[in-house]
Amino acid sequence: MKTFDHYDARSIDEALGLLGKHRGKARLNAGGTDLLGLLKDRVLPQYPELIVNIKTIPGLDYIEEDGERLRIGALARLCDLAGSRLLQERYGVICEAALAVAGPQIRNVATIGGNLCQDVRCWYYRYPAHLGGGMLCARKGRGPCFAVKGDNRYHAVIGAGKCFAVCPSDLAVALAALDGHMTLVSHRGERRVGVGDFFSPLRNVLEADEFVKEIDVPKASVPRLQRFLKFTLRKPIDFAVVSVAAVTEVKDGIYSDARIVIGGVAPGPFRAGKAEEELIGCEPGDAVAAQAAEAALEGARPLSKNAWKIEVARALIKRTVYR
């Protein structure tokens, strides 16, 4: 790796100060499992001059409930999420999603904040510089989206614009299904953004001087059915081809509430509102699950090689909603 300056931040303020001072040329490092890969392959349009270690900021790895919300510090590791009794009992989709990420060694260092902020896996975007130079594309600010005319088997089928890369985060899918929010901090103050709104086709909404501090999820008032499924060619290592998180409430034998979120098909976690509409007011069963699956990706426009993802998404929805 090309060298950079390095600083161990002791507080969020200190980290924010460095981000401000270096004006887009500093990068925060938590688990490092994504950032180091980007640096080694020289993927980023601008190589950072400073890496700010935020693992040294104390007290940001909590997983706790207060009166209204579940709160997770941005530095909570995926292994911590997977092993949390609280999450296992009440927020199972978060555990399932955390366990579905990469392999054990990665989960031992990767953080929830990093999982949400990680860069996309598009193989054009990530093409390594030392194999003949990286590929300048729309996401890097100049050029086309190569996936449109290229090999797009893993790319977006819905909601994409100038860039067809999909959101690589499994946690984002689970958290969106729980109506999760992220607290972003900067010197201008704090703002809360819904996990689903954090992503947009060309980049996430995090500003260069912002810091993800916390992820929160409303406490459930009633018992819910939760399920997260991830489709990959291989169980470990792989990023989701398609994932689905479904969180439903059944009252008096009918669906009273449903949140169905699909990962791997769009630039962000895709909330399948049409599928939810199909469910609400109906009795759980195979037929209604199939209807929801059919409706979920209505309006999807696949590229040349990724129509299969729609079929996979339908299968996963059926299995997450009812089985």
């Binding site: 193989w123 054009y124 990530r126 093409y127 190569f146 005319k149 290229g150 060619l233 470990p236 290592i237």
Partner: peptide
């Protein structure tokens, strides 16, 4: 292989699949 540029797109051990 990228059909347009001829670049090998999965030249890494995440995108090149192997048995776990």
């Amino acid at each position: 292989l990228d059909p347009l540029s001829g670049r090998i797109l999965n030249a890494n051990m995440i995108d090149y699949k192997w048995r776990t």
